[in-house]
Amino acid sequence: MVRPPHTNATVLGITGTAHAQTDWIASVTGRIGWAVDRWFIYAKGGAAWAGDRYSADVPIFVEHIEANETRPGWTVGGGVEWAFSQNWSAKLEYDFYDFGTRSVTFTGTIFGVPEVVPGINIKETISTVKFGINYRFVP
């Protein structure tokens, strides 16, 4: 889970808070690289998806709205992998994810009355660093 960012904004003396949270990221990628002895240096890219939740609150209006979605996007990255024994390797990798800008419709309540707020544009990019240990099953 990615730590939820939030922002406060004041318009005409009215303050509200917006939150965004990415619960999961999935990708399907391919990688290509250069192998030397026990080292593999590579670049990778492919398709990506993110599970996001958004919410906003304006306390003076007793307003709470929220939305969630699965966003499609793309990813590129690169890394280095080291085979430290016959079946084991370790890798360090950087990945950049871009999910573009999407128009999201929020639903919720204002003064206890149901409301729909369409057309809120949300841009999303994510950077990650991964460390992994791999085991290869060799016959």
Rank of each mutant, 00 (worst) to 15 (best):
F106A: 06
V76I: 15
P114C: 09
V76Q: 08
I60C: 03
V113K: 12
T17H: 02
P59Y: 08
A20Y: 11
T17F: 02
R102D: 00
R53K: 13
S127Y: 01
G108V: 13
W24S: 08
H19K: 11
A56M: 05
T125S: 10
A90G: 07
E81C: 07
T107W: 05
T128C: 02
G73V: 09
I32K: 09
W82T: 09
A56K: 05
R38H: 10
F61N: 00
P139W: 11
G112K: 04
V36E: 14
Y94T: 09
R53F: 01
G100A: 10
S85V: 10
I65V: 14
A56N: 08
V104Q: 06
E63Q: 12
T15W: 03
I25Y: 04
G73S: 04
T107V: 14
R136E: 03
G13D: 04
T7F: 12
L12F: 14
T70F: 03
I14Y: 07
F96G: 13
I126P: 05
A18V: 11
P59M: 05
T109K: 08
F61M: 01
V80H: 11
A50N: 03
A43F: 04
A50F: 04
D23A: 14
D52L: 07
D98P: 02
T22K: 05
F84M: 13
Y54C: 02
A56H: 05
Y97V: 06
V62E: 07
T75S: 13
E93F: 02
I60T: 15
W74P: 02
I14L: 10
Q21C: 02
V129C: 01
E66A: 14
T22Y: 03
G77Q: 01
K123Y: 12
V58W: 01
G112Q: 03
G30L: 07
A9Y: 10
T125Q: 12
R136P: 00
G73W: 03
F111Y: 14
V76T: 15
I126C: 08
W34H: 13
G45A: 00
E124D: 09
A56T: 08
T10L: 06
I126G: 10
N87I: 07
P59G: 05
V138M: 14
W88A: 06
N68G: 10
P118G: 11
A18M: 05
H6D: 11
R31P: 00
P59L: 04
P114G: 08
V58N: 00
P72I: 12
V129L: 04
T105N: 00
E115W: 09
S103R: 06
W24F: 02
A35V: 09
V116A: 11
I65E: 03
A83H: 15
V116C: 09
P139V: 10
G30I: 10
W39D: 00
T70K: 05
V28K: 11
R102Y: 01
F111S: 13
K130R: 15
R3S: 06
D95Q: 10
I133T: 07
S85R: 10
A20N: 09
V80T: 14
A50T: 07
V117P: 07
D95C: 03
V117M: 08
E124P: 01
A83T: 12
V2C: 08
V28F: 14
G100S: 09
G51H: 15
F106Q: 08
D57W: 05
N121F: 11
G51M: 06
F61H: 03
G45V: 00
R102T: 06
Q86T: 15
